[in-house]
Nucleic acid binder design. Structure first.
Lengths: 214, 214, 214, 214
DNA sequence: CATGAATGAGTCTTCATTCAT
DNA sequence: TATGAATGAAGACTCATTCAT
């Protein structure tokens, strides 16, 4: 009995491992500059599986992207939660920025995926289950940010305004900065190191946030 | 002889007019939400020309995008130059932001095009001539921004730092804000009007810029 | 030893039961309008067995159809044999028609299966054993019909002609009528009830058969 | 001017000829026993054109079948109209049967196509224009049959009943007979020549029709 | 020069069948 | 024996680009 269960569990483990192989393969391909042209066949080859196998794990190509985005979200939230919540606001804030950039830059494909999944109609095309997941992810993220902002307001470091107003420009800056790095505009056009760029952007965000009028 | 020349000249005018027709057609199609799926055939139909004619004017599909980006750049620069240079820095700065957003939001296709042309490897795939044009465009833009920043520094409104450091985060914020608007994140997720969003973002940029430490 | 035999016998019973489960599952799926798109996986799911199990019982998908056709043939023959052979010919004849239509229309999947198995090359692709079975089935059916026709001839109700000539047009009418019902031509295009249609067709067959000249 | 028009007309002629090539190719492939497995690529190869060319002429695979069915309908109607309408009913009736069988048996693919297009949901999946065409075709056919039947009734050869009741069983017999010939049941199982079979079937139809009670 | 028919490589997706556990 | 994951050959359809007229 135990043996049977182990055997069954093994099969399941192998299946899940292969699913991860596929996700890893996709992620590695999405890191390349031509990530938008990645085909299901390429993913299959890279994962060392047949094309049909992909469709045992994912109902369509976009579901792979979605799953990667979900995985990425969980990683990011784990990173966030590992930040010491007792630190003063500005240190938490900087940590969040740093952690976010680290994640997104550590693997360009993460960024590509996030970016892809933000495309108009992307979520709408997913199956209902995944749509719900995406909604929950957003809520989880928003809640976290809201709690941090509340702390900042309590500490008097940032103005007392609705959270969405506080984060609006931050998100914009963050997103834009990422894209500039991915597009290699930072190192070529701006001619500065990514680190310097991130320092400036972080400073900018901190100052901008604190300076938002009441 | 004269007749022939006139005839040739008229032909040439017709030819150029047709080129503009194609560009206009492409622009109008790129305004739709499904602009990424626009085909050469659709452009040809919209322009009222044959598909083959497109290739008399542009060596490939991407060249159309490139040409639109060039045209857009010129419009934007014209807008910029129409700003009264004698105003105080912060008014000029706000005007630039306003003018930029107006252009990019007034016509979604402009945004789509700029966005498309920033894709990795896009410029590299163009023919040398267009590549040069893109480099010049960038230089022209940089020069303009540099001159404005110099003014701000001279007026003591912004810190005395290299231009690229001053503009780095601004560009990021600007880009990110645009994308958020296009993706309809502003009106749905952040649940605020585009106008409110732009006000916050502009304020944020102004404050952030002024607050960049030495 | 005895224990082993019992065990084996039970196993065997379970195995045969499972085979019937598969056949039942297939039959139930073939009843739907999209029966031509039924997949092996659907059959396995419906039967509550694994896809691989199907291939322990049937060497290929078509063999399932073949087996269903065989089962159906036996049902039909049983129906036929339950008709009182001492009745006058025309009552027997009408009973046969009625029984046949009842069977084939009572369960659409029976019809779909018969129809499928009549497709060109279908029998030829089967394994020799099944081919033989099909030949025997046909022979059994032909013999039965021949005996009925002989009765009719003896009673002077139908002309004295070779059986194949007597049944040729009957079969055609019967087949065609079935298909018209399945295709819903009867209720839509002809705009009559299936019952009225069957009455007319039965009458037509009876009259046509009796009227075949010598 | 004339030259230009001729030139334009030539292109059009070539285009139409190629369309006919594709239809001819499809028709020839649909004649084979494995006609249900014919692929777009096969049609393209047979027609000597590229796969993409097919889609310049037909929006999808099923449209090819539909067009073939339309063409076939016109041929058949032309055949029908060439029958001398002043003949006595039973001669007209036999002519119609003969002409129909000749057409459908002269080219097996015609039959396959008619058969395919009668499949449930086939017409529903076509574009509205073709759906209308199919409705009109049916109406045209029905009108023709109705006029013939009216003649038969007027001559007192067949009972005075609604047309749909008169034709219901005829259609069934006709359809069934065709399928039996295509499936080679006639020559193998019934062991008679197609001609003999057709004679019997025609006789059967004539007798059955005349004998339908009031 | 203008045209649009022709092209065919490339895309996603399906499914009968196999085979290791 | 039962399983279901894996396979890969097809399949329908798309579209940027070419080229004969």
């Amino acid at each position: 009995m135990v043996h049977v269960m182990l055997s069954s569990s093994r099969k399941e483990r192998v299946f899940l491992r292969r699913e991860q192989d596929i996700l890893d393969a996709a992620l590695s391909l999405f890191a390349a500059p031509d990530w938008e042209q990645v085909t299901v066949e390429q993913i299959a080859n890279q994962a060392g599986v047949g094309k049909g196998t992909i469709y045992k794990h994912f109902s369509c190509k976009e579901e792979i992207y979605a799953r990667l985005a979900v995985d990425f979200h969980h990683q990011l939230m784990r990173d966030y939660r590992s930040i010491d919540a007792s630190l003063p606001f500005d240190q938490i804030f900087r940590s969040i920025i740093k952690v976010s950039f680290d994640r997104l830059l550590g693997d360009p494909s993460c960024g590509h995926v996030s970016f892809y999944c933000k495309r108009g109609q992307f979520v709408e095309r997913l199956n209902p289950e995944l749509q719900t997941t995406f909604v929950q992810m957003q809520a989880e993220f928003d809640d976290f940010i809201a709690s941090i902002m509340a702390q900042g307001i309590a500490q008097g470091v940032i103005p007392e305004r609705p959270v969405n107003q506080l984060t609006a420009a931050l998100e914009a800056t963050f997103d834009g900065a990422l894209r500039m790095i991915w597009n290699q505009e930072v190192t070529t056009r701006l001619d500065m190191s990514v680190d310097s760029f991130l320092n400036i952007v972080s400073e900018f965000m901190m100052v901008g946030l604190a300076g938002l009028k009441h």
